[in-house]
Nucleic acid binder design. Structure first.
Lengths: 128, 128
DNA sequence: GATTTGTTATAGTGAAAGTAGAACAAAGGT
DNA sequence: ACCTTTGTTCTACTTTCACTATAACAAATC
């Protein structure tokens, strides 16, 4: 179940990308499953086909799905495997400014551990 | 010492904002210190005054500095104090999509702890 | 009194985000 | 074979964001 907020300052294609990622984390989408076609999903969500297409390509660039032209988008992410070096480096790049912000607020390393733990729980709640 | 990359896909005002935050975390800037004037810093960095101004207002909206018109920008962040509720919630909002991405790559909670730890070390290295 | 300060206003360029419509070739279903 | 669906590609448009540029203002500083 995907819910988009067109009023959000977060672009639609990023909202969609993140929600698909979280669905995979929850196990609602598993390795080998195929995503709906860009036209079908765009129709369901009431947004443009190209916006969905952009989300799919975001996921493909991260190595999470594989888009096979005229076939469909297949999930290849495997939560049991270890992250690739490139994926790890991209994570660090995204994480660093947020961690710096937390530190300047006075968060300790232990605070971060607790924060991460609660976020993971939140993501894994179904019907999120 | 601030170094900006005009080729980066990260906006200049966000690069500057993050580097000021990291300087505070490292202790190079302390509570009560004043930042250079927007004109002076813009001149040093070779960018426009308004870009620096935008960074300062970003920092003020996060409660990290206080801008006093005709006076200067004073650092009010105190790493010894605990984060405010609003600051905490903003952190969660920024962190969630990145954590979800890490999970889909197969990172465990322990992996995240190690990752955070290494990022904190990296931020605290002087001459970063 | 002259300089510096942050603020405000206007204006412009370039890129990104999103929408829209159309056409294409290939795969799939009938 | 025929038709539909598929992802891709192209053009085109609007809106917003990022950044620069110049100017003027009032208040603080020296």
């Amino acid at each position: 179940m995907v819910i988009l907020d067109s009023e959000s300052n977060v672009p639609l294609y990023l909202q969609l990308r993140t929600q698909i990622i979280e669905s995979i984390v929850r196990g609602e989408l598993a390795k080998g499953d195929t995503l709906p076609s860009v036209r079908a999903l765009a129709g369901d969500l009431g947004i443009n086909m190209h916006t969905v297409n952009k989300s799919y390509h975001e996921l493909e660039s991260k190595g999470i799905i594989k888009i096979v032209p005229k076939k469909g988008a297949v999930i290849i992410a495997d939560a049991k495997k270890h992250a690739l070096k490139q994926q790890y480096e991209n994570l660090v790049e995204d994480l660093r400014p947020v961690v710096a912000e937390g530190l300047v607020y006075g968060l300790s390393e232990a605070d971060f551990q607790q924060l991460i733990s609660s976020i993971i729980s939140k993501i894994k709640e179904e019907s999120s």
